[in-house]
């Protein structure tokens, strides 16, 4: 279970997160939507401390971190949180000097200290799951964007995180490659993987989300089931955002 309480984050004098509260049960999928610059990426990056919040707290399983009046988060807590989360990046960020298999094995070997053979077995199983068994010995630059992103998902899964974080996993992809990545994410959702996903793909969001939050200007504007947020939003601003999106889609 993840619980975030009164989270604040500023870059210099710019306050980007202005008190975020949310809860996510194990096995559920949370989708974050909202206009550009509303703080979606920043919030997601707070989950694994790529950004360190200025105030508030994060609880993930038995790891509890309070940032209020804390100067420097202890390295031990940072690592603990990062080992319980996996992240899939918009621009994949695969390790270009390692093969696909190497990318997926790396965290298991360096971080979890697994024997090579065990790491290889788990990596191959994950590659099969994302449909890339035959690419195990390729290098990332030899793959299409969609394939690279699926490797990114396998890499994030390999360290057996409690939560997977996605930051617009398909927005760098050519339209015809979006489907193959979304399919993998949907499959993970069906298997009960806990996930937090930032996306602009509204149809996908409606399909996969248990909860959607709509962010605006550092606040959570709407929070609820896809039905509640996408079909019956309460605030006029949310309605405006959703209308603009569906306008663009047509």
């Amino acid at each position: 279970m993840i619980e975030i309480h009164d989270l604040h984050k500023s870059f210099g004098s710019l306050e980007v997160l202005k008190g975020i509260n949310l809860k996510l049960e194990h096995g559920k999928v949370l989708v974050i939507i909202g206009p550009s610059g509303s703080g979606k990426t920043t919030l997601l990056r707070c989950f694994n401390l790529l950004e360190v919040p200025n105030r508030g707290s994060i609880v993930l399983g038995d790891t509890k971190l309070d940032f209020t009046n804390v100067k420097k988060v202890p390295q031990k807590s940072v690592l603990e949180l990062r080992r319980k989360t996996g992240m899939v990046f918009q621009s994949y960020n695969l390790f270009p000097h390692m093969t696909v298999l190497g990318n997926v094995m790396e965290g298991q070997i360096t971080v979890q200290k697994l024997p090579k053979e065990d790491a290889r077995k788990r990596a191959l199983a994950l590659l099969e799951k994302v449909g890339l068994s035959e690419k195990a010995d390729s290098y990332p630059h030899q793959l299409s964007g969609g394939q690279q992103q699926r490797v990114g998902i396998a890499r994030a899964m390999a360290v057996e995180p409690e939560v997977l974080l996605f930051d617009e996993p398909t927005s760098a992809l050519d339209p015809e490659l979006v489907g193959e990545v979304l399919k993998v994410i949907k499959q993970l959702a069906a298997e009960g993987m806990t996930m937090v996903i930032v996306t602009h793909e509204m149809k996908f969001a409606a399909d996969v989300a248990d909860t959607i939050i709509l962010m605006d200007n550092g606040h959570i504007l709407e929070q609820g089931t896809p039905q509640e947020v996408l079909v019956h939003p309460k605030s006029p601003r949310a309605l405006q955002f959703l209308n603009r999106l569906s306008g663009e889609a047509e």
Binding site: R82, G86, L94, G107, T110, V111, R155
Partner: peptide
């Protein structure tokens, strides 16, 4: 960031 996200120091 990718290295940190898999838990590396």
């Amino acid at each position: 960031e990718a290295a940190f996200s898999v838990g590396m120091t």
